[in-house]
């Protein structure tokens, strides 16, 4: 199933933009195959920034 079908029906997308999207997606799949642990959530990113910060005075966290 094409998960972009609804958008594609409403918004015509030129061939060159589809090709660009396919190339970008291919890269994401290749990097994911190499680097992506199962179960990781996108929200973990902000916690990682806090954890990897300069070892300066910090309270960390987000509102």
């Amino acid at each position: 199933m094409d998960e972009t079908r609804d958008a594609a029906e409403e918004i015509p997308i030129e061939v060159e933009h589809r090709r660009t999207a396919e190339a970008l997606a291919r890269t994401a799949r290749e990097v994911a195959a190499e680097r992506l642990p199962f179960g990781l959530e996108p929200q973990d990113f902000e916690a990682a920034l806090e954890r990897l910060a300069e070892p300066e005075p910090a309270t960390g966290g987000r509102p």
Partner: peptide
């Protein structure tokens, strides 16, 4: 902007998920 309309949800979500391991590796 237009390539964004042709990308799928799975690839978008993977790109977001990959930020953490790639940040850890870069740092």
């Amino acid at each position: 902007m237009m390539p964004g309309f042709a990308l799928g949800a799975v690839d978008y979500l993977r790109a977001l998920q990959l930020r953490t391991p790639l940040l850890e590796r870069f740092v």
